[in-house]
Amino acid sequence: MIKKLWIYLLLLISAIVITFPVLYAISASFMTTQEVNRGALIPSSFSLDNYIQAFKSVPLFHFLLNSFIVAFSVMVGQLIICSLAAYAIVFIPFKGRNFIFFLLISTMLIPWEAAFLPNYITVLNLGWINEYSGLTLPFFATAFGIFLLRQQFMTIPKELYESAQMDGCSRFRFYTKFALPLSKPILSALGIFSFLTTWNMYLWPLLVTNNNDVRTVQIGLKMMISAETGTAWNVVMAGVVLVLLPTLILLILGLSHLKRGLTQGALKG
């Protein structure tokens, strides 16, 4: 009983410490400028003025839409391309299968941050600056995704594949009718993970966008800080809340899927 009390106490204190920054941001997003300047913790009245101001300060709605388009495209692209690659590695017996798998997985050794300079030049030469393609295409294939789906596909019984082939089921049909539907939990884990990481991307969108056309909301936040600092932190916090809500909700809804996928990728790796 006393142990339980201790646990609740520790859980509660930890929860307060972890959530404090976000709760404070939400609180500050409803404050008046005077309240923020005074260092208040709770707003005295509830008004959406800061949110309206945030949409006026920078084209926030447009940025949110861009982020959504980019994150969604990368999610779909990764699911298709990684699952196709993993499918070939698991189900098609071909010469050099191990070599190809090794080659794909070896990209885990290449940190994006060590390779982004030539990528910037490539995108520049292709004319993809300020284009969705420049923001999305480079991220359509990841070693993590291929590895995760390979592990998943290996759990599908070989007998199922063989009997389906006997019944005249083509390779591609087996991929769409059996392999993918049987892997729904892992596919949703990978989908959530790729959406989150793409939505949250910072360095690459900073480089390949220099006007508002396809600029993502993370860079929009940086613009807001330079546009509003010194005057309106409440408006900046309203912007922050709008940026973190979509992924926070996605995380909360998809946590159980995500946990299974990440744990599988991490622990069996």
Binding site: I18, V22, N200, Y202, I219, L244
Partner: peptide
């Protein structure tokens, strides 16, 4: 609650 910071982008987190 303890998982939540995974859903917070580096830009939003750093701004707070």
């Amino acid at each position: 609650v303890f998982s939540s910071t995974l859903g917070i982008s580096v830009a939003a987190g750093a701004t707070i």
